[in-house]
Design a protein around this nucleic acid. Structure first.
Lengths: 341, 341
DNA sequence: TTGTACGCGTTATCAG
DNA sequence: CTGATAACGCGTACAA
């Protein structure tokens, strides 16, 4: 049972005894139709279980009420909160968000963007700024509104909604220095094609350079954002001579891994070595000791980004970047260095 | 700059000096067109940067190459891995996956399904089985292929791809009993509208009942799947007299919270109290001690679900459920109960 | 206020 | 192998 063919505007019109134009108006501009007529239409709609055909609508209106977001991966919790908030805001605005993943690969990102464009998204949200010119050219050729999130640059050529990764990392490093550390190492995310990661390294360097402390391999190591990689990297760092007294990590996942790695190396945190993270995801307080980290207002950022993109699409607003502040959350994983350092 | 209007089939046809039909064929059925002609078309496509208009295509073919997935929330890592794997598989098959969230609310889920249907998805993936009849009726009225995932019931009326939550929970509880525990408490997820949570409780009850051990409030408590709720629940349980020697949690997030709660209550895990989780997400090995938990093959499950749905849509396969096995991963958080119990 | 009629971009049928 | 041409479902001038 079940006729298998969805009812069309035409079916509704016939049933309500009006024209298709009237049905369309009843649905889209209800004020322009007599209440009595509208009631008949609505009844017919309900009886038939009519829903407008997406393709037909997209074809004629040239809008899809759809936006796309390309993130590196869903698996890392780093993006989950912000993305969910964005999604909620878009949903509230009646638009659907498509999520695609790039696995931190520029070529793949471009491909996903192409796919989203082919699907007629009305706007796009991208993470960070680092991507080939060709990608930006494609976006501009299409003349499609887009937003860069998770970063903020006052001088960016494109509107962004995010925070100053470099400044936040510098502040974190300064906090570590203020705790008395002088032998500082860093586990960074892979910086190739990831400007957030690169900026965090730069920020840490800024702070250390101000005290004439270098940050170079082998004390600076780049690893993927995983627990295991964080752990391995920490073990490597802690085997160095002289051993670092503090490890600054590119994010909380790496920091949690480093915590485990330190433990496996027989060192206590923060007694023997301090470890700090970045992002303040749930994981930061799940581990023991809890992580000193940089709190990023993921939810507010996601909502603001969605709102702005909706406005850009509606052309009620010109592109204007939004900057969020971060702050350091002091928890157990950072303390003064051990005596004698 | 930027003409602002995307090139159409017509534009390509003119440029290549052929008809629109030939362009369409070159793209969709390349063998049916002379290589030389095809080359001209492909050149024009490249020069113009043409991409087929999604709406036009959807209109005539009545397919969108889009599937929908409704999950409770993106924020909990429980779904991230499986969802990403599903997404990858769908992408490989040339279809786009739309992700919507229900926040564990049936009404909201129905609404999201309606939205997805209105967008013309070719198929649907839903989590679990518990939802109002009206929702199933809606799906059947539309005659749309759909799949239930994260569960498996041999007698389900609908095709499912997942595992036996009840059996897995029973096995976990038996493991706890085998370690010598007799005072067992449970922190469950909210069971209203969440059959996976309900089944896990049932499974634990099965195992305990076999030993004439009851599981009732206040030793059974329902809380949302959050770190904080897990911690609070654990503290409440550990204040009971007699105090439980083992706490079985509805998932790893709650278990990680319970771990923290126990520590805050001044108890050591597993020396004073054992704690076990469910799902084996990354978090399980980030905490100390690492969680004894139930490993669920999220990735394989996600991929299998995507594959099956694609086949259902293509009608090359009749609905047939797929069952995955789980297994218990023994780690540090479970040991024998303290002496005297 | 309502109806008629056209066109959006694509695919598919049918001739040639 | 290729080209007209007719749908597909909807929104919207324009006319009534």
């Amino acid at each position: 049972m079940g006729t298998n063919t969805a009812p069309t505007l035409h079916d509704v019109a016939r049933r309500a005894g009006v024209s298709t134009a009237t049905v369309s108006r009843s649905l889209n501009l209800p004020d322009r139709v007599r209440p009595q007529t509208r009631a008949r239409v609505e009844l017919a709609v309900a009886e038939l279980g009519y829903t407008p055909h997406f393709g037909g609508r997209a074809l004629v209106s040239n809008r899809t009420n759809t936006v796309g977001a390309v993130i590196p991966t869903m698996e890392n919790a780093i993006f989950a909160r912000g993305l969910q908030a964005m999604q909620d805001e878009f949903t509230a605005g009646g638009v659907t968000m498509l999520v695609a993943t790039s696995y931190y690969d520029a070529e793949r990102e471009a491909e996903q963007i192409r796919t989203l464009l082919a699907r007629g998204v009305d706007g796009l949200v991208l993470i960070g700024q680092a991507r080939p010119d060709s990608t930006y050219q494609m976006l501009q050729a299409r003349n499609i509104p887009f937003l860069l999130v998770w970063i903020y640059h006052s001088d960016s050529s494109y509107p962004c909604v995010g925070f100053d990764n470099r400044g936040a990392a510098r502040a974190m490093a300064e906090q570590v220095l203020a705790s008395g550390h002088r032998r500082v190492a860093m586990i960074s995310g892979l910086t190739a094609g990831n400007d957030r990661a690169a900026e965090r390294v730069a920020g840490v360097c800024d702070a250390l350079a101000a005290r004439d402390i270098p940050l170079e391999p082998p004390y600076l190591v780049e690893k993927p954002y995983t627990l295991d990689d964080g752990g391995e990297a920490a073990k490597t760092l802690l085997a160095l001579d002289p051993r670092p007294t503090a490890i600054i990590c590119g994010n909380d996942v790496q920091a949690a891994g480093a915590l485990r790695g330190s433990r496996e190396a027989g060192l206590a945190v923060p007694r023997d070595v301090s470890i700090v993270g970045f992002d303040d995801i749930d994981l930061a307080v799940a581990v023991e000791p809890a992580l000193t980290t940089v709190r990023v207002p993921h939810r507010r950022m996601g909502r603001a980004a969605a709102k702005l993109l909706l406005q850009l699409i509606a052309k009620v607003q010109s592109p204007e970047s939004i900057r969020f502040d971060t702050r350091i959350i002091q928890r157990g994983s950072l303390s003064a260095p051990p005596d004698g350092y």
